[in-house]
């Protein structure tokens, strides 16, 4: 990792406004002579599920929100599941769907009727 940083910071030798003489390795942006030095960095990231559609087709709640059942029981950890068909649902909703459906139709994706095979589960 340190190597990465050194490489990256090595590329930043030209930060200072006042032309630099020589630059110690890997410390370039923090030279006292540099015109601007960064002292504190507080970026903000937003995360969201990597999904095509915002809603869960089963419970019609946003995938970013817990599913209806979890909202009622006040659970917050309600993750998303992706099928091979790349359709995504709440994991709780989908497992309930499979449980209800196996007897008659077999487990299929409610959106495209393809055989439901879990591709990955979010966490």
């Amino acid at each position: 990792m340190d190597v990465q940083l050194e490489e990256a910071s090595g590329g930043k030798s030209a930060v200072g406004y006042v032309p630099m003489m020589e630059e110690p390795d890997g410390d370039a942006p923090f030279l006292p002579a540099a015109s601007i030095t960064v002292k504190k960095f507080n970026p903000v990231f937003f995360w969201s599920w990597d999904v095509q559609s915002d809603n869960c087709a089963i419970c019609r709640v946003m995938l970013m929100e817990p599913c209806l059942n979890c909202q009622v029981s006040n659970k917050t950890a309600c993750v998303v599941v992706w099928g091979e068909c790349n359709h995504a649902f709440h994991n709780c909703c989908m497992s309930q769907w499979i449980k209800n459906a196996t007897a008659t139709a077999g487990s299929k994706c409610p959106l495209c009727q393809a055989e439901w095979v879990i591709h990955r589960v979010g966490n």
């Binding site: 601007i36 002292k39 504190k40 903000v44 937003f46 990597d50 966490n123």
Partner: peptide
């Protein structure tokens, strides 16, 4: 650490403290 998530850096939020040396 996580799977199935998308990260977006919102530049206009958050802050950077810098020292103006010039």
């Amino acid at each position: 650490e996580y799977s199935g998530r998308r990260l977006t850096w919102i530049f206009q939020l958050g802050s950077v403290d810098v020292r103006l040396n010039f």
